[in-house]
Write a protein that binds this DNA or RNA. Structure first.
Lengths: 129, 129
DNA sequence: AAAGATTGAGCCGTCAATCTTC
DNA sequence: GAAGATTGACGGCTCAATCTTT
């Protein structure tokens, strides 16, 4: 399913799914920004990998780094206006893929599947929401 | 779940999960061997990627390439005795991970989840079994 | 010394081009 | 010319080491 959605995004000249995850995490965060560390944790990526990913998304102008007033070691990643626009462009493609490739075939069992997979996720102790 | 199992395998000095998929596909194939192409299709990997993967597994002595009598372009990948032994060493770790991290939390909903995800897989037209 | 972020090295995957055989 | 396999170039992730700040 992921592969198919990636292909759809590429076909429309849009960024890969990983970018959406990052931008969405920033968008819904308080102040539209998060530390690199928090971002890496939410998206299940190493801190190192997140630094590279933030580099690329920043180069595309969809987010920008900002200093943290009370801690001069750290940096926020903050979504830009262009980032929000990109989020809105990507979402329809994403949603369409999820609906057609996943939700439709799951059908009436959706609630059972969701609960079961939530139990799997909780077992690990990763991210919630 | 995959990540956790990968960690368990690494902790015991065993190869990554991708190797298991390849070895298992060879083990159950007629004659204990498959063409690179067939292998790539079954494991959902590009033919190019499969060539590299076969390179590494062959270097470890778990499979060997063999010529195809009736088609001198092609090459079989055939599992070795060491490969079969490795399969037997990896399976307990794999099985334990699946049981503890996935099957246990899914519990009584297993049948519903399996049927639902099979419908998702069929929708695409990839591999069956 | 520990934490946050970054950089360099290495692994693994894909795409495009090549070589051999059909 | 097309198919099977391979190789080179490149993208993206992880590990270990480094730099700065606490």
């Amino acid at each position: 399913v992921i592969q198919r959605i990636e292909r759809d995004l590429q076909a429309e000249g849009l960024p890969p799914l990983g970018w959406y995850d990052v931008l969405w995490a920033l968008y819904r965060a308080p102040g539209r920004r998060l530390r690199i560390n928090e971002l890496a944790e939410q998206v299940v990526l190493s801190r190192t990998g997140m630094v590279r990913l933030v580099d690329r998304i920043e180069a595309a102008g969809l987010l920008r780094r900002e200093p943290v007033p009370e801690d001069r070691r750290g940096a926020y990643a903050m979504i830009t206006e262009e980032g929000v626009k990109m989020l809105r462009k990507m979402w329809p493609v994403y949603a369409r893929g999820i609906e057609a490739l996943f939700l439709a075939p799951v059908g009436a069992d959706a609630a059972v599947v969701r609960d079961a997979l939530e139990r799997v996720a909780e077992r690990d102790g990763s991210n919630e929401d």
